[in-house]
Structures are given as C-alpha cells and as structure tokens.
Design a protein around this nucleic acid. Structure first.
Lengths: 211, 211
DNA sequence: GTCTATATGAAGATAGAC
DNA sequence: GTCTATCTTCATATAGAC
C-alpha cells in the first residue's frame, strides 16, 4: 500500500518547491484525519512547517487546496486497486483474492477516511466525488465486468449481465462491512470473522453464477 | 413516507413550546440540507422564526441541538423500514418488495441526506452513528435474518448462515447504487434501470440460496 | 520566496431590557 | 419567555518587511 507521503509527493508536480509539497502532504493528512471543515489553514501551515503567507503564496485558497487533493485521491484509488490476475485458472481463488484486497482497502484507516471525506464533501465538491468514483469503484467494477465476461465466454461461469453481476459481487462481499465502518461501527469487526464473511460471500456468488 | 415536519414534531416532547418544535424542525431540515458544519445557528434561528437568544434558551449549544436530531434519525429509520410481511407465500415476491422499498429509501433525497450526514459526523458524534445503525440497518438486517431462518426451516431456501446471507442480500441489492448516490453520482440512475437491477439481484440471491 | 503581524468577517454564545 | 444588541473567539486571507 502506498504511503501518504509518497501520495502527496506524487500528487505535486516535480517542479514545485519543497514547501508546496510539504503543504500538500500536510493538507492531505489533516483532511483525512479531521475532515474539511475541522481542518484549519493554521493547522496545515503548522503541520507543514511553513507560514500561512507561504501557504497562500502557493495555493489560492482552501477550496483550491482541497481540490488539489483530488489528484492524490485518484492516485490512491488507482494504485491501491488490486491488480486483477485474470488467469481464470482457479476462479474461486482469484475472486477470493480480489475480494480480500478490496475489503481490506474499504476497511483500512486510509481507505475509510478517504471514503468518509469524499462522501461528506461530495455535495460541495462534485468534481471530487466524480473523480473518486471514476478512478476507484468504477475502475474496479470495469475490471470485474471484463473478468466475468471472459469467464462466461469460456464456460466457467454463466453470467447473463456482467455489469449487474459485478455490482452484486462488490455489494455482497463488502456492502454491510463498509456501511458499518462508515458509521463508526467497524471496531467490532473481528479479522477472522471478516475473512470468513468474505469467503462466504464469494461462495454464494459462485452458486448464483456457476454453470 | 413520514415528512420532515412530522419527524421534528415527533422528535420533540409534546410538552415543549411551539418555539422549540420550530427550532428542532428547522435544525433537522438545515442539517440534512447543508450538513453540520455549514449550518449556522443564525440560519437555524432565522429558519425557525425565532431569535438566537430564544434558541439558546431551549438548547444548550449546537452539539446538543445536533444530538437531539438523533431521535428523529432513529425514528426516520424505524418508521421507514418496510414492514416485512413474512408470509412466505411467494418468497421471490416478498424479497422483491422488501428490496424495492429498501433501495427506494437509500436513494431518496431524505434517506441519502441522512446517511451522508451521519457518515460525515460519525467520528465527532459516535453516539449518532451507533443510534442510526442500531435503529436502521441493524433492525432491517435482523428482520431479514428471521425471515431467512424461517424460510430455511420450511425448506423454502437453503440458508446455512442467515446473518451472512442477509448481509449479502442487502449488499447485492443496493451496494453499488448506494455508493453512487453517496458520491453524488446518483443522478445518472434511471428508474427503470434501477428496478431491473434490484430484480436481477434478487434473482441472483435466490439462485445462491435455493433448495 | 518567506516571514511576522494584522485586517476582516463569520459564527457560537450571552447580557440585559421588556 | 422572548427579543435586540453585543461579546468573544477563531479562521480565512492579506500587507508589508526582509
């Protein structure tokens, strides 16, 4: 998993000064930790080790600073989405591996914080919601659609509607767990219980779409 | 569906003055529309048609006012959750009806706004997250668990783990749709497409758990 | 570019009159 | 109980010196 540091650095152009990188990095961390409204420009400047004036020399205002995070947000999603080894050697094992990685991302502190802030601010920053969706869930969904289509063509699964089947897959492996995490009820989720739930869901999916 | 007006009235004790009711009603509306941070006490007082001093005569502060909303929040969930006619006459029809009502709630403006604000503020108001979960998703989940257990006992379905099966049911009928709505990408969801997706998911669930 | 110091305004909360 | 007017705090954003 990519670190917040590398994300912030990657999010900034390579030509920008170290100060700007520090500001973006600090902003990403604080926004994820505390949310948009609760994060003050003072705190970002302090965390970055620069003055507020320097901060405003690089970024127009708080909104622009937050929107700059969109890049890191997209990168987070694109980088973290598991590489789908679509070998179709062992469908159950492949789906299981994909599902585990997906759920681990949803429930990780960074992943959950990112989902939370994007959901919270989507009305005020529609572009952020769009970028997050397109670069994260939509990409993973598309990968699963392709996988299921091939599996259907090869007669390994019987999938009448790959898009809907993919949506059902993601929903059933992580829907309730994700909801619990979003509502702050994720602390009760035991790791073993989580793993068993994912496995159970994958098996149910396979029963629904086996040949 | 219960209106915001009746919710606010029901949320307040019957003995409190009309002014307090007006404040609670205004607060609920503005919180749902704009979120916690973006809603000022000035705006709530103005919307309620009272002065700020009057507002503070009834509620200690903004946090307490927000927490008072928890009651309405719980009530919204409890009231809106579809009555589950567990007749087991026609399982597919019953699951379909339940699923349609559930998804309609998730995607309704009021439901989506409630989910959004609770998710956004769950870190700062853990009790709100807990109350929302216990009175909404958890209740519906429990109802589905009971339904599936009975269906299993009667040999109508083969459900090895009712809790996990219920989680999978909710995830697959609404997971991706809900996520899209939360990220502000719900406007693209065509009503017919939505209905077809729900039906498709119910059928997939039945294939996974049929006898 | 970077800093210290400050202007400006918004929002939570209250004092005192009626 | 209710209001007008005000206090206080804090956050965004900038001015001016180095």
């Amino acid at each position: 998993m990519e670190t917040i540091e590398s994300l912030a650095q990657a999010g900034a152009d390579d030509q920008v000064s170290g100060k700007k990188k520090a500001v973006l990095k600090a902003a990403l961390r604080l926004f994820l930790e505390q949310g948009y409204g609760a994060t003050s420009m003072d705190a970002i400047a302090r965390e970055a080790g620069v003055s507020k004036a320097t901060l405003y020399a690089h970024l127009k205002n708080k909104e622009e600073l937050f929107e700059a995070i969109t890049t890191s947000c997209a990168r987070l999603n694109a980088t973290l989405h598991p590489v789908f080894e679509a070998g179709h050697q062992d469908i159950r094992a492949e789906l299981l591996s994909f599902a585990r990685d997906h759920v681990a991302l949803l429930l990780s502190p960074e992943g959950a914080a990112m989902y939370r802030i994007v959901i919270a601010e989507a009305p005020r920053f529609p572009e952020l919601g769009r970028a997050f969706f397109e670069n994260g869930p939509a990409i993973r969904h598309g990968a699963m659609v392709d996988y299921l289509k091939i599996a259907d063509e090869r007669g390994l699964l019987k999938v009448d509607d790959a898009r809907r089947a993919a949506s059902e897959f993601f929903g059933m492996i992580g829907g309730m767990l994700h909801l619990r995490a979003m509502l702050g009820q994720g602390h009760k989720i035991d790791a073993a219980e989580q793993a068993a739930a994912v496995e159970h869901a994958v098996d149910a999916f396979l029963r629904a779409y086996r040949t």
